[in-house]
Design a protein around this nucleic acid. Structure first.
Lengths: 127, 127
DNA sequence: TGCACATCTGCAGAACTCTTCATATATCGA
DNA sequence: TCGATATATGAAGAGTTCTGCAGATGTGCA
């Protein structure tokens, strides 16, 4: 057991050093965690999955997710602030679209994974 | 503007129906959101990125993330409960490893994305 | 202009999350 | 067996997040 510069016990200082060298910077970690965090709420996730196919207006998104229109609007505002979705306004309606290629990749991967899981465990599918 | 069975206003009922048909079940959405949620905390994310290269013990993980050993242990417990990581005990040490192929894919994708972003915006890299 | 509709926003309460502190458990070496 | 080490755990407090409510904004129609 060794001690590092800050007097912390280390079991494998070389591995720690190489992991630290490869580790993205704090800001990148924070940004990435933010993105995952946005996907980490089931209602927001459902909202985003709904948008995979193309733009939808707020009331349709509310109907799909089962959220109130207010909650939907709040959620979309958050996603908009992080540039994950974009808006197109047409008269009284606001049409939201998925506007982040990275998030789209993550969603595609996740949805593909649930479908794969269903294939293995069909009993877990919805009735 | 039309009304659906629950008396909700819909702008594009056909799109809503097709999105609903394609939508994963509530349980799959919840499971997926859970996974994203686990990745949505910067310290847990750093922990998991550190484990991409192989197993590490608790004190090394604490040193890498800058967390206290207690906080590290709590975080690992949560990840363990969701079967994202696994443990190997060797004497007094506990070596944790990434144990979920789906999470590994998500992490690889995310890390690749931050590297790509750095290539475009090198000024955002750490000092 | 006035009213209805679609969406947005600030606020406040409820619920959840993360960390620390204190303590518990388990292992190793003397 | 005893003390030190490594990790795990429970409880509690600070901070954050999400939702509903109430009201604001902006658009379309008569």
């Amino acid at each position: 057991m060794q001690l590092d510069a800050c007097n912390v016990r280390l079991v494998d200082p070389e591995r720690v050093a190489s992991v630290n060298a490869r580790m993205p910077g704090e800001e990148d970690i924070a940004d990435t965690a933010d993105v995952f965090g946005l996907l980490g709420d089931p209602r927001r996730l459902k909202l985003l999955v709904a948008l995979l196919d193309g733009e939808l207006c707020v009331c349709d998104l509310a109907a799909i997710t089962g959220l109130s229109e207010s909650a939907t609007s709040h959620a979309l505002r958050l996603l908009r602030a992080h540039r994950v979705v974009g808006v197109r306004r047409d008269g009284r309606n606001a049409f939201y679209r998925l506007d982040d290629a990275h998030v789209r990749m993550l969603l595609d991967l996740a949805v593909a994974h649930t479908e794969h899981t269903d294939a293995i465990h069909p009993e877990r599918s919805e009735a």
